[in-house]
Amino acid sequence: MRVWRYGDNVNTDMLFPGKYTYTCSTPEEIIPHLLEDLDPSFSKNVKKGDIILAGKNFGCGSSREQPVVGLKAVGVKAVIAESFARIFYRAAINQGLVLIECPQAVKAYREGSEIKVDIDAGEIVVGDKTFTFPRLPREITAIRDAGGLLAYTRKKLEAREKLKE
């Protein structure tokens, strides 16, 4: 597991340049450009289970969802940041990408510290320190548990259809 460390205000153009927004939509198209203008080594070296640690306002800017789709597709286990931008936060819920807002954990991290995340318990261990983060409301975990918003919506539509019958 590798920890990728970034600073404040990592915006959606850094995560996925706007010039590709209307030509790349699938994970295969997105992955080569992921974090292209922030860290060109990321897309070549990121592995399943890696964690991103960032400062304030991660994901600010555009509503484009390619950054979230890409990070989910390469298997990023969680993004832990001091805070997240609103649309990015919603997009992550909708794709089932785990975001954890925990400034204390970000500040406690030192180069080489091991990070363990237990999403269900709401716990992060950084080195020898343990931090807790609030669990999401039921309305939101329902989306994540269904496997993302589209799967959740499909279930809802099927249920409505059954009611009609």
Binding site: S63, R86, N94, T153
Partner: peptide
């Protein structure tokens, strides 16, 4: 503002 997936869900 919302993302594309949410817009897809809203369309339906």
């Amino acid at each position: 503002g919302i993302d594309r997936t949410e817009a897809a869900s809203l369309l339906l």
